[in-house]
């Protein structure tokens, strides 16, 4: 079984944080082109920090709330991480 992709990790963490319900999580996982903007989730600042902290733990990358603004959706944040974003220099 291959390791989850960055996109799958982001979706899993958002579901754990209660920002995606089970149906939405499943729909996103089977349709890679589907995307959700973080703004639409109306996360408060501490939940946004939770997302970053959990992603840092899961990926060993540095992920900051600023990245959620610069890469403002699940797919764009995943693409940022896929491209090596947040890796130690």
């Amino acid at each position: 079984m291959s390791a989850p992709s960055f996109r799958e990790r982001i979706i899993g963490i958002l579901a754990d944080l209660g920002e995606l319900d089970a149906a939405r999580q499943s729909a996103l996982l089977v349709a890679p082109d589907q995307d959700v903007e973080f703004v639409a989730m109306e996360m408060d600042s501490l939940t946004a920090l939770d997302l970053c902290v959990n992603l840092e733990d899961a990926t060993n990358r540095t992920v900051e709330p600023a990245d959620l603004v610069s890469y403002p959706s699940i797919n764009r944040l995943a693409a940022f991480l896929d491209a090596g974003g947040g890796a130690a220099p």
Partner: peptide, 9 residues
């Protein structure tokens, strides 16, 4: 002074 930093920073 930056509100947009993560826990590691």
């Amino acid at each position: 002074f930056d509100r947009y930093i993560g826990l590691r920073t």
